[in-house]
Design a protein around this nucleic acid. Structure first.
Lengths: 235, 235
DNA sequence: TTAAATAAATTGGTTAACCAGATTGGTTTT
DNA sequence: AAAACCAATCTGGTTAACCAATTTATTTAA
């Protein structure tokens, strides 16, 4: 189990190294937008890593719009200047390992907005799903069981009702990190969970009566404790 | 070129189908948290797709924390209830193809926050980088050239200065989509670009004097036109 | 009959071979 | 001399074989 994690970290380190090597190569060779990168096999040989690692790194840079692979042709530098290229790669390298604080800060930002949008745009079906999630959460809390998953589902239901697919995606992306950290730090004891039922209900009611301002307020109140917890952590 | 896009869409469709088949299988077989999924080879045969497709789908679900692959052992259902599993998979399936409106709405939300945070947290180095990006943007606009990339870099510099790695990541993620759509719709003519110089400068100055409220206001003003443009588009 | 030992089969992960299409350089033809 | 053609080569993408570790089935000893 531990080995598994180690090798994944190793893989990430290898990928970071490859990406920075690609950046160096672009700079050293003065590759401009549209220029072709060396082939995957060449890079694999030059960097002394497997071709699979090279492909992963290229796909990551392609995801961020910096490279473009064309089958049977090659991998090309995207239409972006050298300065921008360096800046974005630097960003990408610096990324990963998001701190819990960063996740929570972003989650709060997103959820204040999704609550507001959900109050504005929710359909009857959305409301029904939110209610179901709320009931499932309350049920588990009352039984004294862990309800992190149900808590999360309630918030995701709101994200869905917001009608904004990008925010919905981002909520899904930060969800695993939130869950992991919550379970790691045991942030919620049972008292907080009981309080949470009321807070969730308040949010639900605000969305039900389609009051965006109230929904945002209630969501803010719900996050107050989380916010304080988060910012009382060591830097 | 067009074929390339088609095959990528095809691949996405295949992946969506596989994911929904996995969901159906979990429901039909009543797989609970900790239970083992059939092997990749078995699924590959059952769904009549290549093992690579299966692996991709599993990795995606693993990314969202729904499955966990353990080498030489199997792929297991994560510690998440059936309802949550179905909900999240439904979300994941519904995702992709973010509408431009959704991207812009999210970008505005993020950038109002990053501008504010940048004014609060920016270092002198951050400020220097923002200034450089601003100058590069102005330079290109004055020369009458396309400055979408430089525009973007200015905003990314602010995101970096915000000190929030998650928001920084999200900005990087929506960037390709923003660029593509901007170039497709030619949203910025030269007049708008010239106006943009002033607006960018205003934002920079606010961050320089570390006035978070002003920074947010100036960013809001900068996005006013984009916002209107975005919401005047056809639904 | 049971438990320990061992061999066979199964697992996700990795690597190397293969594929179709694009590119390239040289040759031929006009 | 230039354009057209063609075969050899190179490209990213895909597939099938392989690997080490684990799990299961079988055998053997007590």
């Amino acid at each position: 189990m531990k080995l598994e994690i180690l090798t994944k970290n190793e893989n990430r380190e290898i990928q970071k190294k490859i990406i920075s090597q690609i950046r160096d190569l672009i700079n050293y060779k003065n590759l401009e937008p549209g220029d072709k990168l060396p082939s995957e096999r060449t890079l694999s040989e030059k960097f002394e890593v497997s071709r699979g690692n090279i492909r992963e790194a290229i796909q990551k840079l392609e995801f961020y719009g910096l490279l473009q692979s064309i089958p049977q042709s090659g991998t090309f530098v995207a239409n972006i200047g050298v300065i921008a290229m360096n800046g974005m790669i630097e960003d990408i390298l610096r990324l990963e390992d998001p701190e819990f604080k960063s996740l929570v800060e972003t989650r709060i930002l997103l959820e204040l907005k999704t609550a507001r949008l959900a109050a504005l745009r929710r359909t009857d079906d959305d409301l029904k799903l939110i209610k179901e999630a709320l009931d499932a959460y309350a049920h588990k809390v009352i039984k004294g069981e862990d309800a992190v998953q149900e808590d999360l589902l309630f918030h995701l239901a709101i994200a869905k009702a917001s009608g904004n697919s990008t925010m919905n995606t981002f909520m899904l992306i930060i969800t695993p990190g939130i869950i992991t950290n919550f379970e790691k730090y045991h942030v919620c004891d049972s008292n907080q969970a009981f309080l949470g039922i009321q807070e969730h209900t308040d949010i639900y009611e605000a969305i039900k009566i389609q009051d965006p301002k109230l929904a945002k307020e209630k969501m803010k109140a719900h996050f107050k404790m989380l916010y304080q917890y988060c910012y009382s952590q060591k830097e």
